[in-house]
């Protein structure tokens, strides 16, 4: 899965790795060595630092990490949306073409036809003054679908996401929907272009548990039906475990660990992942109380020279504070910890 042993450097990979000429083996999304820097006065460390991430067709990949770790920025980069003034290094390939090198027309094509995004807060991502019908059909209309057909398709989509009375729903305004219902509408809109890749940025964080289950169920059903690849951003490890095939764990702009989901939970390799697991409250009757991770996440204004997690890590040694660990892969897993091989977490 990982064709490099170390992935900590920020240089772009060679442009062709031999497989893309065949066309088939090109991953749906392949982020390599992505580093995103703000102007020096705005931040002491890069927002994203040498991120490597890939999503294959039909696969669900989780991206987990604390607030401010750079998950949303990574997602938006896939759509070619960089923070103002940011400089990017590395490549972000969607079906083999680098989004970072694209012109306006290419980006438009990617956003319209290949990649769709669902945001955390459905209220913030729809125009409150426009009817749901307009919101759903605008994407289709710019693609040249006639109005009647677009409306029919919108109704079909609303049915698919489980909205009763889809015909009536088209005429309603966003505030007439509950959060869960509105998020379904947003998902319907995201799927209207039949994208190959869906970026779901904490799509259920604003919803309660039962609604979350329904929305995730809908996402999964549609994903299976359409063969969509999904990058699912969340800070809920349990949720990620329940729906993802593989998980990337991010801390302070770096990928610190990635593993297939079962292994990640059974054998976390990075102390941060282990700490995150221990801090998640569990429902089981015999579960221990959640263990807080001391301290707080690293802000953009801080640039610790060594491992970014060292200050909060129970296993940190002197070396951790001075030497930044590279992401080292080992079969399907990868971990960026100097002490990963010492069995500290057993």
């Amino acid at each position: 899965m990982f064709d490099k042993t170390t992935a900590g450097d920020t240089e772009a990979r060679p442009a062709t790795s031999g497989t893309d000429t065949a066309g088939r083996d090109v991953p749906l999304l392949d982020i390599a060595g992505l580093t995103l820097r703000l102007p020096d006065h705005a931040a002491a460390r890069p927002i994203l630092d040498g991120v490597d991430l890939r999503v294959d067709r039909g696969e669900t990949v989780g991206l987990v990490g604390e607030s401010g770790s750079g998950k949303s920025v990574a997602c938006r980069t896939v759509l070619g949306l960089l923070p103002k003034g940011a400089r990017a290094e590395g490549t972000v390939r969607v079906e083999g073409t680098d989004v970072l090198a694209m012109g306006a027309a290419g980006l438009r094509d990617v956003r319209r036809n290949k990649v769709a995004m669902v945001f955390q807060d459905p209220r913030a991502s729809v125009n409150p003054m426009r009817r749901v019908g307009d919101f759903l059909t605008e994407g289709l209309r710019v693609r040249g679908v006639p109005k009647e057909q677009a409306l029919a398709r919108a109704q079909e989509l609303l049915t698919e996401v489980g909205i009763r009375d889809p015909h009536g729903a088209l005429r309603r305004f966003p505030h007439q929907f509950s959060g869960g219902m509105l998020q379904r509408v947003v998902i319907a809109a995201a799927l209207s272009g039949d994208p190959a890749l869906l970026l779901a940025d904490e799509p259920t964080t604003a919803l309660d548990v039962t609604t979350q289950a329904e929305v995730v169920g809908i996402l999964r059903r549609l994903q299976h039906r359409h063969g969509t690849g999904m990058l699912f951003v969340t800070h809920d490890l349990e949720l990620a475990a329940a729906i993802c095939d593989r998980i990337y764990v991010m801390y302070a702009g770096r990928i610190v660990e990635s593993q297939p989901v079962a292994d990640l939970f059974a054998r976390p390799r990075h102390p941060y992942t282990a700490a995150l697991l221990a801090s998640t409250p569990r429902l089981e009757a015999d579960a221990a109380a959640p263990q807080p991770i001391p301290g707080r996440p690293v802000s953009l204004a801080e640039a610790p020279p060594g491992c970014a997690f060292a200050a909060r890590c129970a296993f940190a040694i002197e070396r951790c504070r001075s030497e930044a660990p590279a992401l080292v892969s080992d079969g399907p897993a990868a971990v960026a910890c100097l002490r990963a091989d010492e069995g500290i977490l057993q």
Binding site: G162, Q212, E238
Partner: peptide, 28 residues
Amino acid sequence: VLSAPQHPYTRLLIDSVPGVGWDPERIA
């Protein structure tokens, strides 16, 4: 209440919490 819920709604809430054997379709 959490280990032996009496009302089906409580049961539903408990099942909805993501975890092992979580099945969104069944919850819905």
